[in-house]
Amino acid sequence: MSNLLKVENLSRSFGGIHANSDITFDVNEGEILGVIGPNGAGKSTLFDLITGFTKSDKGQVILRDKNITNIRPDLICRLGVGRTFQKLKPFADQTLLENVIVGALVKEKNLKVARDKALEIIDFVDLIEKRHHYAKELSTGQRKRLELARALATDPKLLLMDEVTGGVDQRTIPGLVELVLKLKKNGITVVTIEHNMKIIMDISDRILALNQGKRIAFDTPKNISQNTQVIDAYLGTVDAA
């Protein structure tokens, strides 16, 4: 199996806080990599570093053979890395369809073609009936799907998802999980930040565990669940339901 993404010694501090220190891991083509860690562990910062939203103090991000450390977010998107945001960022005053068309325009030159592609992806995330609704009218769960659809419309090889199941109606979680598995089937490599232990153990091929900005484990779900450091930092404190 070949590496799609390699992250080496990535570090970033904000003032005195070491949000990420010397994070190293890799992502294989076609896998689902789960990222876990308590609040403030540095998970979102890691995504921001990979996608160019925050500049790193040290370290490298390598996509296939290309060094993409600290390049502009829009270029990283064009190189095939899509992402969603933990704090949702929909285009609130535009419809779901318009939101997704913006993503589709990255690859499609023709608006009509982009629209049709956007519709297919909206159908894929199961929101086709809501296509003409304004983003601000959608529920949190629907907005998470909107962000997912928007990122998917850019044809990513690698998709970074920041807490897709966080803060949504419990009943919609199985649907979201199914969606992630469908992505994997379609050949998209996924890195997902997830607080729900059951989900992460079920779907991940490997898991990266962070605590206080440091990598405390990087292993298969089975080994992670037995790792004492992880249990101390995280599993012990969270209801693993």
Partner: peptide, 8 residues
Amino acid sequence: EAASSLGI
């Protein structure tokens, strides 16, 4: 920010 994450 979302716009730049979509290649703009």
